[in-house]
């Protein structure tokens, strides 16, 4: 026996599984819409709630949803946080994330908020107060992903 230590041993344990995730009816259509610079919402046939991101069923009244509509990519910032300490694999901090109510919907869309200087915390927090109007800025390269919108800009940008 060469090992005489009684300290606890440590084993490295690793999980590795590759998945391929199916986005289904509602999100596939939504993501393809983004690729074509279209912001699509769905409206419950039964209770008229409008969801963005869209969904193919309404969890509230528990009925299927079949009505779709295109929305102007404009809305109101409800709240935001400015991230100064990000995480591995995430965007480069600082960046701002907002909860945006797109006009005419009953849900919030989460997205980056841009067009604000984040180097001064207090000034940036003031600029990103709830109630501020925002408009989507489309990414140049679009791949049917949520990041096909680069961010929502506080100063209304030209579409």
């Amino acid at each position: 026996m060469s090992e005489t230590s009684t300290a606890a041993l440590i084993h490295d344990v690793r999980w590795e599984i590759d998945y391929r995730v199916r986005l289904g009816r509602a999100w596939s259509r939504f993501m393809r819409g983004l690729r074509d610079r279209k912001l699509l919402a769905s409206t419950c046939d039964h209770c008229d709630r409008t969801y963005l991101p869209p969904q193919s069923y309404c969890e509230a009244c528990y009925e299927p949803i079949t009505r779709w509509q295109e929305c102007e990519p404009v809305g109101t910032l409800r709240t935001a946080t400015i991230v100064y300490q990000g995480f591995d694999g995430g965007p480069q901090a600082p960046y701002a994330v907002g909860a945006i109510e797109i006009d005419g919907t009953h849900s919030l869309l989460m997205h980056f908020v841009g067009g604000v200087d984040l180097s001064d915390v207090d000034a940036a927090r003031k600029a990103l107060r709830g109630g501020v109007r925002v408009r989507a800025v489309w990414a140049d390269e679009r791949t049917a992903a949520i990041t096909d919108i680069a961010h929502f800009a506080v100063a209304p940008a030209q579409p």
Binding site: V21, L23, W27, P53, T79, A80, T81, V83, Q85, G86, F87, G90, P91, Y95, V97, A99, M110, H111, F112, A145, I146, T147
Partner: peptide, 17 residues
């Protein structure tokens, strides 16, 4: 996943909202 994770939202950032 897919919808909100690509937007730089980790646990603490969700908690900050």
């Amino acid at each position: 996943m897919v919808m909100e994770q690509p937007l730089g939202m980790g646990a603490v950032h969700m908690g900050a909202f």
